[in-house]
């Protein structure tokens, strides 16, 4: 399984999270849905779909939190039959990114939470402020998205 990134600063913390947390799939993305790095996906179309769904789910959850609790919900955890999903905002200067991780019985929620905390601390320290991702302009969004995917899957 290869880890691929669209921005070089993503590689080290994402690799550490994947290795220590023993997750099967992981994606770090802008809250707009643009991918910054991924592990475990074989096809760019899967990354694109996962990013879109993760961004939408994170946004929905944040709004639901604001509505119910006056503030966005934090991490989300879904349990499937054999796999589990962990989806959480990654705070950085000037905004936030989103991390989606999929894991199975080789890991656990406790481990993923533990290494996610370390991941957040590292990312916060090294992520360029611009990575918070000012909302992508409509005109540029698709081009940016495709560029990132092309970089990661070696077609740039």
């Amino acid at each position: 399984m290869r880890l691929t990134v669209a921005a070089s600063w993503v590689e080290s913390p994402l690799k550490a999270f994947v290795d220590d947390g023993r997750v099967r799939l992981a994606i770090l993305l802008h809250s707009s849905g643009q991918v910054l790095g991924q592990f475990g996906f074989a096809r760019s179309v899967d990354v694109m779909t996962a990013c879109a769904l993760a961004a939408a789910t994170a946004a929905s959850s944040a709004e639901l939190g604001r509505l119910i609790d006056g503030r966005p919900f934090n991490a989300m955890h879904y349990v499937g039959v054999t796999q589990q999903i962990f989806l959480a905002p990654v705070p950085i200067e000037g905004g936030k990114l989103v991390l989606l991780a999929v894991f199975d019985e080789d890991s656990s929620l406790g481990l993923v939470q533990l290494f996610f905390q370390e991941f957040c601390a590292t990312v916060k320290a090294i992520a360029p402020a611009a990575s918070a991702g000012e909302p992508a302009l409509d005109a540029d969004f698709e081009r940016e998205l495709n560029r990132n995917l092309a970089v990661m899957f070696g077609r740039a």
Partner: peptide, 10 residues
């Protein structure tokens, strides 16, 4: 506690 719990259970 949370680190000990997660790592030891694993």
């Amino acid at each position: 506690g949370s680190a000990v719990a997660a790592l030891t259970a694993s």
